[in-house]
Design a protein around this nucleic acid. Structure first.
Lengths: 338, 338
DNA sequence: CTGTTAGCGCGTTCAT
DNA sequence: ATGAACGCGCTAACAG
């Protein structure tokens, strides 16, 4: 059995509240009793029961953290940024994967609320518009989702519209005019933004949209490979010469499809990824990509949440936008002359 | 204010215990009251307070999960394996990073115990021998640590001795006899095992040990780069021609050091990594490495823990050993002829 | 300075 | 089939 406050009280023949106060360092307790209590507690290896404390205090010192998939290479650093700061503030993090499913996300949310977490950090699986009801009066921060017109929550997000715009413009300036985007699923906030940025750049440079060049897939390598194969099957005349992928992982899947047919990058296809994962620099050829500050995203999100936890009066919500940055490497170049 | 059982009771003019029983589906409650209660609960969006339940039941439905660093590319998949299974079993996971520091690890452990987690999954930061006292009567599973002679806990680990042996033997069979290992820090269980495997292979093939060829560093890219530079500074005569790294990330750091001096892989140096991260296949050249089943490690660990949670009688502890596998790619080849 | 009492929200006796 | 009373471990209000 674990030792509790009443055990110490009995052994010392004092009341439980005195023990509690002594342990809490209350100034009203004599130094003598304080010492007695603290010594015995140490000796018995007493550890306060945080569940009981939570019931009383209405605080759990625990944060819920919901992300799509920790094995997506983007997530670990976001998580680390959040966890590091939580740890510094004596907070623990419950990690939940939604697997990009809003149903699972909502289940996770309910459980977290039942566990009375002090706050929630969430990267929405979908567009996140459905979250306002559930999150209601929970302190929380939405990550990587551009806030809608009526935002009621804190937001930290990367300007993916700008990211996709930069990538598209880069290809256009290299001389490409047949540019495809292999985007993520519909109804996913960052992907919606990326499509906007892509279209904005094309329009700006007077390049007509081609519906076959706007494709959707999921975030894994295999999906990128499959979409690249679909593009290849369009026939040489209609091939896009520059392709932007939703993630570095899907881009690397495209490498597979391209090499399988003995084409070359960037001679035949310029490939641009997204995320700038650590390994992108070492791909063959090194991948041109859009860098986003992942650690900061998590860290700033947790910062906002912690600020809100400390803040008694329910002050105004904050929005923080992070700027992505194009990283030009060798997977992009001018298109082959016909 | 959140709605609680007593609220429902008052509105229905029945006792809290009846509500509690109805919600729990007790057979002693009439179907009529049951329906009334359940309907109202749904209507009021009642969610039971799990903190209060935990205090009563001594169960938190929460697992503590301590790893060195979620941003180390090995960890996410282990975590996913564990979390997926936890999720299926209505368990949540509190994620803690020890940052490879035993001090932080022990702090995390204490907090988790105070939060009364049902069990703990841990990848020890060091050799883990100090853990027996603290974990004492906590249900837990040690991950990626070879059990000592007197094991009192469940263990799931990869046979890193075999992994390093395979890598070393591969280099020897290619014709190398100057083989270095850039290992992880001392007192780290997997690294101790790897050194054993390396030495075993050298001995078996009658190759003498060279102390300068046994190096230690940390797990990040930069550390691998630094150690490779140190090896390069040994001078051409003493250069090892084959080098085994503790991780794919440190190996890729070595690529940097090698390319900086315009040497070639594997012409001048054969490089072998460890882990087989998803991206290793796409490095330039594709990295020969040792594959370990990461998702399975986490999953099997959680399986064991869940089994132990269900098991009333404190049954015997289990040890599960996973076998690594050499993945030969193009970063390893015969040494250059003198 | 210290002890007594009460209550956080729930489940579980023990009554009826 | 239902209600009253109690306790999980801790802290805070009240009393002295």
């Amino acid at each position: 059995m674990r030792v509790k406050i009443t055990d110490i009280a009995k052994l010392l023949d004092i009341s439980p509240s005195t023990v509690s106060r002594a342990l809490a360092g209350s100034p009203k307790i004599s130094d003598k009793t304080k010492k007695k209590v603290i010594d015995l507690a140490k000796q018995l290896n007493y550890l306060p029961d945080l569940v009981a404390q939570s019931l009383k205090s209405n605080k759990t010192k625990t944060i819920g953290f919901i992300i799509p998939d920790i094995s997506n290479p983007v997530c670990p650093e976001i998580t680390k940024g959040a966890e590091d700061l939580a740890s510094e503030n004596n907070l623990n993090v419950i990690l939940c994967n939604s697997d990009y499913k809003t149903v699972k996300e909502i289940e996770n949310l309910k459980t977290l609320i039942q566990k009375r977490v002090d706050g929630i950090l969430i990267i929405p699986a979908g567009n996140g518009n459905y979250l306002n009801k559930i999150l209601d009066d929970i302190k929380c921060v939405l990550l990587d989702k551009k806030p809608g017109s009526k935002f009621e929550k804190n937001h930290v997000y990367t300007d993916h519209e700008a990211g996709a715009y930069l990538a598209t413009k880069h290809l256009i300036e290299l001389g490409h005019n047949k540019i495809a985007i292999v985007n993520g699923p519909k109804n996913h906030s960052p992907c919606e933004q990326m499509e906007k940025g892509y279209i904005k750049a094309l329009k700006q440079f007077g390049i007509p949209l081609t519906s076959e060049y706007i494709r959707k897939c999921n975030f894994k390598k295999e999906h990128g490979c499959k979409e690249m194969k679909a593009l290849l099957s369009l026939g040489k005349e209609k091939w896009p010469t520059g392709i932007i992928f939703i993630s570095d992982m899907t881009a690397i899947g495209a490498y597979d499809a391209i090499y399988e047919k003995d084409y070359k990058i960037p001679r035949d296809f310029s490939i641009i990824g997204y995320d700038n994962i650590l390994e992108a620099k070492y791909f063959n050829p090194p991948l041109t990509t859009v860098n986003q500050a992942r650690y900061e995203l998590g860290q700033i999100g947790m910062r906002l949440l912690i600020d809100e936890l400390k803040d008694k009066k329910n002050s105004e919500k904050k929005i923080i936008k992070l700027e992505p940055r194009l990283v030009v490497r060798e997977s992009s170049g001018p298109p082959a002359k016909p």
